[in-house]
Amino acid sequence: MVVQMELISKRYGRQAALRSVDFSGDAGTVVALLGANGAGKTTLLRIIATLTQQDRGRYHAFGVEAWPRRRSIRARLGYVGHRPFVYPELTCAENLHFFARLFELDDAVLVVDRALQHAGLADRAERPAISLSRGLLQRLDLARATLHNPGLLVLDEPDTGLDVAGRDLLRQLMRERAETGALVIFTSHALDFAIEASNRIVTLVNGEVAADEPSAAVTLSGLEATIHGLREAVSVA
C-alpha cells in the first residue's frame, strides 16, 4: 500500500472536518475522492500530502508513519492544490527549473524540456507564467508536480479551468502515472470526468467515507445520490 489511513479525524475549532476516516490506496491506481463542498476532501488530501497533521488516527505512506517521516515522503510526492505553486514573474521554464533544482534532479534541462513538451507548453517556455490563462497555468502546475516522477500524486480539483483538450491531457497524465506504478488521488466536482478518469471512487459525506467502490460499478445518478442524498439525510438527522 502506498497510502494507509486508519480512523483519521481532524477538527478546525469546533468544526469536524474528518471523522474516523479509513482510506488506503495501492500503487498503479487512480482514486477519485468525491463529495460536496465541505465534505472534507481537501483536508484529507492535505493530510495525505503531509501539509496538515491529523488530530487522531494512523497514517502510513510508503510503509512508514507519515508525519514523523514527512521530509522523505515529500520527496516522493507530487501535489497540486487549489492555487498553483508557480511564480507569475518567472517564465514557464524558469519555474520548472527552480523546482528541478529544489528536488536536485539529474539532467534538469532534459527533464524540464520534456515536461514542457508533455504539458503542451513548449512554445510558451519563455513566457512569464502571469501571461498564461487559468487552464495553461494549471497545466504548468501539473508539469511542476510530476517533474520528479512522484510515486504518490495528489491533485485537488486538477480539472479546474481546463478545456476539453486539457482534461484529455490530465486523464492521460493520471493514467500514465498509474501505469508507472504511482498512486494517483484526485478530487473533482465533474462527476462524469471522475468516473472516466479513475479506477476507484471514494465518496465523502460530512467528513465520513460514505462509499468506496470501483469506478466501473458506479453510475452518474447513483454517485449524485450518494453525494447529495446522504448529505441531506445526515443533515436532517
Binding site: 522523505s72 528536488f103 511542476r144
Partner: peptide, 14 residues
C-alpha cells in the same frame, strides 16, 4: 499569500 509556501514546504528542502 500567493499559496506558493506549500510548494516550498512540500519540496524536500530542510
Amino acid at each position: 499569500d500567493r499559496g506558493t509556501l506549500d510548494g516550498l514546504i512540500l519540496s524536500p528542502i530542510e
